[in-house]
Design a protein around this nucleic acid. Sequence first.
DNA 1: GTCCTTCCTGCAATCGTTTGCGCCTATGGG
DNA 2: CCCATAGGCGCAAACGATTGCAGGAAGGAC
Lengths: 344, 344
Amino acid sequence: MKENPSAPPVRPRPVTLATVARHAQVHVSTVSRALSADPAGIGADTVLRVRELAAVLGYRRDEGAAGLRTGSSRLIGVLVPRLTDLVLASIYESIDAAASAAGYGTVVANTLDDREHRRVRLDAMLSRRIDGVIIGDSHIGDTVAHELRRSGIPYVLVMRKLEGHLSVTTDDYRGGQLAAEHLLELGHRRVGVIAGDQLASTGRERTLGFRRAFESAGYPLPDPYVVESAFSTPSGLVAAGELMRLPQPPTAIFAVHDLLALGAMGAIRDAGKRVGDDVALIGYNDLDLAATLPVPLTSVRSDLQRMGTLSVEALLTGIKGEPAASVLLPPELIVRATTPPLRA
Amino acid sequence: MKENPSAPPVRPRPVTLATVARHAQVHVSTVSRALSADPAGIGADTVLRVRELAAVLGYRRDEGAAGLRTGSSRLIGVLVPRLTDLVLASIYESIDAAASAAGYGTVVANTLDDREHRRVRLDAMLSRRIDGVIIGDSHIGDTVAHELRRSGIPYVLVMRKLEGHLSVTTDDYRGGQLAAEHLLELGHRRVGVIAGDQLASTGRERTLGFRRAFESAGYPLPDPYVVESAFSTPSGLVAAGELMRLPQPPTAIFAVHDLLALGAMGAIRDAGKRVGDDVALIGYNDLDLAATLPVPLTSVRSDLQRMGTLSVEALLTGIKGEPAASVLLPPELIVRATTPPLRA
DNA sequence: GTCCTTCCTGCAATCGTTTGCGCCTATGGG
DNA sequence: CCCATAGGCGCAAACGATTGCAGGAAGGAC
């Protein structure tokens, strides 16, 4: 017995199948079978005895070891731009919940919309022999999806789509339209768009739907009225600032993300105008906080939970080897105080 | 239009040490050593040849198999109440970044501040033989930390502390004091607190520090002026509503979380008052969006990134078997527009 | 009493890596 | 010319779980 008081408490040797087998006086293979979901070919009393013993001893299956043998890690990887984007956090939450319910674990990675990060993190995931990937950060021109297809690893795109790849998204083009139609109806003619990242299908399609709707109503948007941005609050502040400094500032702004709208609120205030009465504002995604802002935000809602859940479903059927179909969810406009009737 | 990239017929057999060994005409053990960080006892030319070959063939170390042999999964678990809480998302982001830089992977779990969820998710983590745990959701009366100590698995508490356990937190008591001192200086005497969850050390200490400061200034807070809550925007709306409906509503509100303050803004508006001029407001954590709100929010800042990074450091020294010390970071008051000088 | 099922359980191989041990071949010293 | 030494590699045994196969006992049919 060696005394080593400064060392941390000794980590007790984990309880394995062998431990249980020894106590139960049976072979480990019998224990394995008895503990499996369908203990075929094992006596009912043995099953009971083994299970009880396993519980008492605190047996825990080693997923790593099991995965080595079975070839499946029961782990799925999730790629997101960043989790501090509330939208992605929401989606990830429901992905994790759905996966967990199906007996899968998840690992997320922030890719920061950066090529190199994406590569490194995906590599780490593949090293863990993940069973599939949910891609929440797809970019036009990005190759992750192609690589996965080539390696034969099941994957699904969520939130952002990409031509020719399985995806679960909401109809962003339609969402842009909805926003435009609402503003047109209110009488707005000179409007601005905070367009987000144009390499993300969300930013592109929402902007496109919005633009087209104004075009076909006879009020096309000049280029300076559409400004690209990231998907963050500070970025919204900057972009809206540009819009407000135009010689003829817009009477309404469509921000393709609620956080952008939040930033826009700051810029509108900085310009000495009031949100709503002076400058109308529409956000996107209808986050919780949209409703409780000092001036409640009109926003296009997309069902984030549903997207997360469906993407897991699609991935799992893919993992089973069955074919899955892309899903396009309908958006919905939620009207609140930032888009009041226009005064004559 | 092929829409099912998910399941090509055959998944190519992964490249293992054996594959590389065959091509290099050496034994797998040689390949293993050649590929290790310190290829001692292997000829320099062999090392080079093997590494090159491994790269060409696309060899990827199977972490699961390696972990089985070495007993370490190079994986750390992170428990958070929920990732849609921006504060926790920020912390997790920096945890993940720091862990990743140190060659570790992370798995998060939302525990929803719920006992059962915590148990289940921790169990799943232990099944993956994680090397350590970072607990971001500790609750007074919760047993997770005790269990981990008993099993001898290294762990660190972050954000929320618990008597007698290693933790990395900010001085929440001091933070509450800072908020109180500021309001006292401005001349506020009748104030309210949205106190958060009193089973979380954050909610408790921030509230306590604030209360004590007002007490010692001679203006103790009557009970109805301190209302408990969750840590979400809707919850802030409700709590502030209660405060505003008191016979003598407070002239200032301290919310122990920025999202609560956001909700409070809504309630103040609903009560027909203006944030800042009519009712002062202080939040906590100084999230990005605090600065860009229509009325920029005064907030107590805690360094979330730093907490995340330090918690990883502490955990890793714990994993190495060395002793680590708890850290208490200083908070800082950021004054903005929601706490203007009081008019006489 | 013999033979054939049917049930239950054990045996052993396998997944991909790591690592203690031992063998072989140069090499240098005496 | 012989021997000790060391560098470079291979061998094989783990780690913990799963699973095809085989074997043994009990029980029924004839």
